[in-house]
């Protein structure tokens, strides 16, 4: 079991590294090479407003006169060692630029995820206990309703009511606790809808399983059946779902930041896109990919530890049937 798990972990890790490498190269190709090269596209473009001296300076600083493969290599090796290069505009290290705004985005993303989890769990577990006549249907309708509302709409509605109408938070102070909370709600609601959807489906599915009826036949009440039997198996797949929503969380953070006027990765991206600051874009896109891959890697590594049924490929079979004369031929082999 242990060895099988280590093999599995090593394979997943290798896969993750390959994905990160490919993403970096792909981003590099899209951002820096296509269509044409940065010198003609960005620097020599009269709309960018660079002087001849500035252009020369940037070419020298970024090494844009070197062959493309050399540029890619130095850029990637820098990325791996934590050197993200210099901004074309401010000439400051990209890592510093990101480090300045990252905490604000992390706070927002983390609180958004927390809101999503609390909301999803409340709604999903509520569907199992709220009787039909007291609005179980309403709870069940929640996920599909909020899946279909974009988070910037939710954000604008929240700003309008809680900011302008009720004055719960001051819109011009986007980093205050209350403003952050409402931004997190706007970010968390669509994500919670996805998680709740999966959770409700799993709970209904597990509750309809034969073992649930058999457990009730052993005298278990509704509450203990839920806590002891249904909660774990229906919550396990949510680990995977959360990992998949990380992308949404990142993307959503950028939009929510813009809506709420927060300084963060979102505003940095916006500024870099409008000024065509390529090194910054390359770093942010690649870092986002790394985060996404790592979170999914963690979910993949966690899952076999949580669910005893998961047998890893190549792992020894733990079937213990020796009595009754049956041999442990797995269906996959016997059929």
């Amino acid at each position: 079991m242990r060895n099988a798990y280590l093999t599995y972990a090593a394979k997943r890790l290798a896969q993750a590294l390959v994905v990160i490498l490919l993403t970096y190269v792909f981003t590099f190709v899209v951002v820096s090479i296509l269509p044409g090269d940065p010198i003609t596209n960005v620097l020599n473009n009269p709309q960018s407003g660079f002087t001849q001296e500035e252009i020369k300076e940037i070419i020298a600083a970024q090494g844009l006169d070197r062959p493309v493969l050399v540029q890619l290599w130095s850029s990637f090796s820098g990325f791996v060692t934590g050197d993200l290069g210099l901004s074309m505009r401010s000439h400051r290290p990209v890592a510093t630029l990101i480090a300045e705004v990252l905490p604000s985005t992390l706070v927002l993303a983390a609180s958004g995820l927390a809101v999503a989890l609390v909301l999803a769990a409340t709604v999903a577990y509520g569907t199992q206990f709220v009787p039909k006549r007291y609005g179980q249907g309403l709870l069940r309708g929640f996920p599909s309703l909020f899946l279909s509302v974009p988070n910037f709409v939710i954000g604008l509605v929240l700003i309008h009511f809680f900011g302008f109408q009720l004055g719960v938070f001051r819109v011009i102070e986007p980093d205050s606790v209350w403003a952050t909370l409402f931004a997190a709600i706007a970010l968390g609601i669509p994500i919670s809808a996805q998680i709740a959807e999966v959770l409700i489906a799993n709970l209904d599915n597990e509750a309809a399983q034969e073992y649930a009826a058999v457990a009730r036949g052993r005298g278990l009440g509704q509450a203990r059946l839920f806590a002891k039997h249904l909660l774990k198996p229906s919550s396990l797949p949510v680990v995977t779902v959360i990992a998949l929503t990380i992308g949404e969380l990142l993307g959503g953070s950028l939009i929510t930041e813009t809506v709420f006027g927060r300084t963060g990765i979102g505003s940095l991206v916006q500024r870099s896109v409008s000024t065509q600051d390529l090194p910054v874009l390359q770093a942010i896109v690649s870092l986002a990919a790394v985060v996404f891959v790592l979170v999914n890697l963690i979910a993949d590594l966690l899952y076999p530890l949580l669910d005893p049924r998961v047998t890893l490929l190549g792992g020894p079979k733990s079937r213990a049937d020796t009595e009754d004369g049956t041999t442990g031929v797995s269906p996959a082999v016997a059929s």
Binding site: Q209, Y211, A213, V214, G217, K228, P233, L236, D307, R309
Partner: peptide, 16 residues
């Protein structure tokens, strides 16, 4: 009242 179900494979919680 004890209950013995039909399909033993699905009658116990798989993750406990």
């Amino acid at each position: 009242m004890g209950f013995v179900p039909q399909d033993p494979g699905n009658s116990l919680n798989p993750v406990r």
